[in-house]
Each structure stands twice: as structure tokens, then as C-alpha cells.
């Protein structure tokens, strides 16, 4: 760019007769323009580098903050269930377990439902309704998590406690594995409720990404499949899904990243108990809920540091999941574009 400008100015100076003062003011103007260009380029570059600095800053700050706890407890921090602020003995097993279990419940529900909604929106829904329904689903994604939390605590948890959980407990009482998973008493709050609320929160993410990905399938492919007599479902199952598989999985991972890190909605309904229980109805805790509940009340460096170490673990897990998600979505983009 800079070279181009110089050429232009030289041509102008050669091609026309200009007085010395005009030429001087022209070159002054050009110089100023070039300077502002350089400054602006530098500014935008610095801003771009700030984004990198932010992420490295997050990692460095967490590592430094977590160092005392990880140094004290070593590897046993990851496998210890104890969480005792009085004796200052901390282990991350219960929060890690709770985070994984609630996210798994969420994905088990949100993935099939989200896929079917996306199938409906891209293949079945009448054109007039597509935009409004799409917007409504995206609005669901925009509702702040604290709203899901307060709603979960006052409306959803009591409902589950009175109607759903007793039913599950009674039904599966004599079924071997399931009787452990759905063992009473029905508290209302607990990992099951948290997982369900996470499912509602993740659903719009899974749906809107799947829909975008399905929309990217070249129409020719679908038309060809219809042409040989496939049903709508067969086109979806054997043409659209295989073609978009990478992107769809990327979308799932993005939703999973959200479920893993979700804080407020879970904090309200998880019960904050540092126990690893086989029953899904038992109160538990997740990494983010532990931090949200305890951080301001944490007394002592080791307690604070243990909570930051939890944050570091969460960041590491979500980083891996999100990085994988982005990589997969990028691969699909390359193939389509």
C-alpha cells in the first residue's frame, strides 16, 4: 500500500508543473496521511494483540493463583473428595464429578432435541414460520443464566420434587442400576435438576448452530436425493447429516463448553454439597457453583487458592472442548466455502 502511494505522488509531481511551495505542501500532506495510516495500523494491531494478552493473562493469573493449592495437595487434589475449610484439606473430585455429570445430562437431552428442532426448521417448517421460530429459539439463548437460576429454584425444582422425582424413585425401585441412579429422597435441588436446566440452556445453542450448518448443505445434493425417491427423513439422515457431521459435532462441543462453565443457573439448584453420590437426585456441586458460592467467604490463602485451582481446571477443560469445537467448525467451513 505504502509503495503504491509513493508511485502515485511521483507521477503527479512529474506529470504536472507545480511550484515548489505546492509540492512541499503536497508532500507534507502525504507524509501526514502516511503517518496516520501507520499509527492506525499500529493501533489495530495492538488491539488484536490485546486479545491474545487477555487469554494469556487469564492463564497466567489462574496458574499463579492456583499454585499454592496445587503445591500443597499435589496430584491428590484431583482425586480427593474431601473439602474441609476448617482443617484446610481440599480436593476437587466432587466438583469435577458434578460438572461432568450435570453436563452429561444436559447433552443427553439437548443434543437429540436440538437436532430434531434444527431438522424441523430447515426441512419441514413452512417458510413464513422459519424466521419467527428461529428468532424465538435465539431469544431463549439470550436470556441471562440468573433468570434460569431463579426460575429453577422457585418453580422447576419444587415441581420436580413433588411430581417427577417421586415417580422416578417409585418406578425404578427394583431395577438394579437405575435404582441407584434415582435413589431418594427427592430434594428437588440436586444434580438432576441442574442437568435439566442446563439442557434447556444449551438447547438453543445446539439448535441454532445445527440449523446454520444444515443450511450450508448445497441444495443440489438434497435435490438429487429427493430425485431418486428418498423421503424427507432419509434425505436428512443419509445426506444432510453425513455432509455436516463435523460441523454438527462442533456445535455440540460449543454447547458442551457452555454447559461445563455455566455458573448461576447451576448455583441456584445444585445444593452445594461436596459429595460424590451415585444418585442423580442427591445434592452435589460443580466447579463453577463452588467458586460462586464460596469465593467471597473463603478465609485463608489455601482456601482461596484451592478455589482458583478449581477455576484453572474448569478453564482447562472448557479450553480443550472449545478448541476442538472451533477446529471442527473451521474444517466444515473450509469444505463448504
Amino acid at each position: 500500500m505504502a509503495a503504491g502511494e509513493r508511485d502515485v505522488s511521483e507521477v503527479v509531481l512529474k506529470g504536472t508543473t507545480v511550484t515548489a511551495s505546492e509540492a512541499a505542501s503536497r508532500s507534507a500532506v502525504l507524509k501526514r496521511l502516511r503517518l496516520t495510516d501507520t499509527i492506525f495500523h499500529g493501533l489495530t494491531r495492538t488491539a488484536a494483540l490485546t486479545v491474545l494478552a487477555l487469554l494469556s493473562g487469564v492463564i497466567i493469573a489462574l496458574v499463579i493463583g492456583a499454585a499454592p493449592a496445587l503445591g500443597t495437595f499435589g496430584f491428590s487434589f484431583f482425586f480427593d473428595e474431601t473439602w474441609n475449610p476448617v482443617t484446610e484439606k481440599f480436593g476437587a473430585l466432587a466438583p469435577i464429578y458434578g460438572t461432568l455429570v450435570t453436563s452429561a445430562i444436559a447433552m443427553l437431552i439437548a443434543v437429540p432435541v436440538g437436532l430434531m428442532v434444527a431438522f424441523f426448521l430447515t426441512e419441514l417448517c413452512p417458510m413464513v414460520l422459519r424466521r419467527p421460530i428461529g428468532i424465538a429459539i435465539e431469544l431463549l439463548a439470550g436470556i441471562p443464566s440468573i433468570i434460569y437460576g431463579i426460575w429453577g429454584l422457585f418453580v422447576f425444582a419444587p415441581f420436580l420434587q413433588q411430581h417427577v422425582q417421586p415417580f422416578f424413585i417409585d418406578t425404578f425401585e427394583n431395577v438394579p442400576l437405575l435404582s441407584t441412579l434415582f435413589a431418594g429422597p427427592p430434594y428437588g435441588i440436586g444434580m438432576f435438576t441442574a442437568g435439566l436446566i442446563l439442557a434447556i440452556m444449551v438447547l438453543p445453542f445446539v439448535t441454532s448452530i445445527s440449523r446454520d450448518v444444515f443450511d450450508a448443505v448445497p441444495p443440489v445434493l438434497k435435490e438429487a436425493a429427493y430425485g431418486v425417491g428418498c423421503t424427507t427423513w432419509e434425505v436428512f439422515r443419509y445426506v444432510v447429516l453425513p455432509f455436516t457431521r463435523v460441523g454438527v459435532i462442533g456445535g455440540f462441543m460449543l454447547g458442551l463448553g457452555r454447559a461445563l462453565g455455566e455458573t448461576m443457573a447451576v448455583t441456584f439448584v445444585i445444593g452445594n454439597a461436596h459429595h460424590v453420590s451415585a444418585s442423580l437426585f442427591a445434592p452435589g456441586t460443580t466447579i463453577s457453583a463452588s467458586i460462586a458460592n464460596e469465593f467471597t467467604e473463603a478465609v485463608g490463602d489455601l482456601y482461596t487458592s484451592s478455589l482458583i485451582a478449581l477455576g484453572l481446571i474448569l478453564f482447562f477443560i472448557t479450553f480443550c472442548v472449545l478448541a476442538m469445537a472451533r477446529y471442527m467448525l473451521m474444517r466444515l467451513e473450509k469444505r463448504v466455502g
Binding site: L49, L55, G261, A292, F295, I308, L314
Partner: peptide, 19 residues
């Protein structure tokens, strides 16, 4: 930067609080 920005976009907000 694009990749890192996408990660930050969906990073858990509680971690930002800790930072």
C-alpha cells in the same frame, strides 16, 4: 487471534471474574 477470540467468546464468565 481469531481462534483465541472465539475461545474467549465462550469461556466461562466465572473464570473471567477470577482473573
Amino acid at each position: 487471534v481469531r481462534f483465541i477470540n472465539d475461545i474467549l467468546l465462550s469461556a466461562p464468565s466465572i473464570v473471567i471474574g477470577l482473573f
